[in-house]
Every structure is written in structure tokens, then in C-alpha cells.
């Protein structure tokens, strides 16, 4: 089992190393990078909007449910919602969902290209396929996913604000007062550190599994599932490691 781990880890590192080479044509690489930014960033925007709004709403309702003491001001709910979203829910939950959405897309796209010999066709043309096919995906994920996490944090807080008002738990004024109270900018740095780490995991792990698929359609599906599972486990592991290191 451990040998299998080292085998995959070694190949993964070699794949990453293979990405660094002089681009054959910078314009084509830029075009591919922009395409991936649209696919990964804009393509995931819808799901990010939906889950972050609901995450914020649910956090508000459940925090209010747990704060039973009359001595705790209602604005505390907003503080809890804000910090929970920034520290954990926006980066981790959103990235776990993106691990499924983006990860399976990357793994199946590359897997299909491998099986149908499209990667071989590019290799024969003299293109470094690791640099051309994987590099722009990782770079696009590193640029767009932290942006999505920031959007998710804002929308989550907005969802919490509206849910609090609609359910009669907390007024807009109280919520805004809580949001402004004892805000720590370091939390945003921590959230972004997580987002950058996760975006690298979400893009590079599925790229590894997709790029190295052998077999047929069944193996593409299997690689896609494995990629998503491994990405999610690594996100949770990184979540704990970053919390232990940075907080």
C-alpha cells in the first residue's frame, strides 16, 4: 500500500516538474489559460452562488438556535456567521464542492483526451502536453478559485443577513453592527491561504489521474471518482494542517 502511495506521489511530482518548460507558442498557452479561467471560474460561479447563500442562511439560523442566553447580544450571531464563513465554510466547503465540479471535469477531460489519443497527437506534434494541458488548468484554478472563495464569503454573509431578517431572528442593523465588531484581517489572510492551497489540490490531483488514465470509458469514470475522493481527503487534511500551522 505504502509503495503504491510513493509510486503515485513520485509520478505526481514528475508530472509537476514536466510542466516547467519553454512554451512552444505563448499566444496559444495564453488562449488555453483564458479558456480554463472561463471554464473553471465562470463555469463554477452558479453553484458557488447557490451553496454560499444557503450556507450563510443556515449558519445564521443554527447559531441563533444555539445562542439561548438572553445575555448574549444578537449582533454576536453576525460575528459568528462572519468568522465561520471566512475561516471555514467559504474556503473549505466551497472547495470541497468545487473539488467535485472542477475535479471531475479536469479528470474526465484529460482522461478522454488520453484514451482517444488526442494527447498522443499533441505529443507527436512536439508539444509538451504537461505544460500545455495541465499548466493552464492549475494556473487558472489558482487565480479563479480564491476569487470564488471571496465571492462565496460575501454572498454567505449576505445570505445570513437576509435569512436573519426573513426569519425574524436579527434585524439588518444588528447584523451589520455584529459584522463590524472585532473584525480580524488575519482571518481573511488565513482564508486565502486555504483557498490557494485547495485550488492547487483541486486542479493538480484530478489532472494527474486524468492524464495517466489507461483503458477505456470505465477507467475514465474510475479515475474521475478517485480524483474527487483523493482531492477531498487532501483538502480536509490540508484544512487541519493549515489551521494547526497558521492559527
Amino acid at each position: 500500500m505504502e509503495f503504491r502511495f510513493f509510486y503515485h506521489f513520485g509520478r505526481y511530482l514528475l508530472m509537476l516538474k514536466g510542466m516547467f518548460s519553454r512554451p512552444e507558442n505563448m499566444r496559444m498557452y495564453w488562449k488555453e489559460f483564458m479558456k480554463q479561467c472561463v471554464d473553471i471560474g465562470f463555469g463554477s460561479l452558479g453553484i458557488v452562488v447557490i451553496i454560499s447563500l444557503f450556507l450563510g442562511a443556515v449558519t445564521t439560523v443554527q447559531t441563533a438556535y444555539q445562542l439561548v442566553s438572553g445575555f448574549i447580544p444578537k449582533s454576536t450571531i453576525a460575528q459568528v456567521v462572519r468568522d465561520t464563513l471566512i475561516l471555514e465554510l467559504a474556503p473549505t466547503m466551497v472547495c470541497i464542492v468545487l473539488g467535485g465540479v472542477v475535479g471531475s471535469k479536469i479528470a474526465s477531460e484529460l482522461g478522454n483526451m488520453r484514451i482517444s489519443e488526442q494527447i498522443d497527437a499533441q505529443e507527436i506534434m512536439g508539444i509538451n502536453t504537461k505544460a500545455y494541458l495541465i499548466g493552464p488548468k492549475i494556473l487558472a484554478a489558482i487565480i479563479t478559485i480564491p476569487a470564488l472563495v471571496i465571492i462565496a464569503a460575501f454572498l454567505g454573509i449576505f445570505g445570513g443577513l437576509e435569512a436573519g431578517k426573513m426569519s425574524g431572528i436579527i434585524s439588518h442593523e444588528q447584523f451589520m453592527q455584529g459584522l463590524r465588531a472585532s473584525f480580524d484581517g488575519y482571518n481573511v489572510f488565513f482564508a486565502l491561504s486555504k483557498a490557494y492551497t485547495y485550488s492547487f489540490i483541486i486542479s493538480s490531483i484530478p489532472a494527474y489521474y486524468g492524464y495517466n488514465v489507461t483503458g477505456g470509458a470505465l477507467e475514465i469514470g474510475r479515475a474521475s471518482t478517485t480524483a474527487v475522493v483523493v482531492s477531498c481527503v487532501l483538502i480536509l487534511f490540508a484544512d487541519y494542517a493549515l489551521a494547526a500551522l497558521l492559527l
Binding site: N112, S116, E117, Q118, D120, A121, E123, M125, G126
Partner: peptide
Amino acid sequence: KPIRQEIGMLFQGSALFD
């Protein structure tokens, strides 16, 4: 790379970029 750019290949399944 220079030799590969002198090679053209038609694959069994055509390998067109879909």
C-alpha cells in the same frame, strides 16, 4: 522537438480534438 515537427500522424481513431 525538431524531428517531431517533421512528423505527421493519423491515428486509428483519428484523434481529432473534440
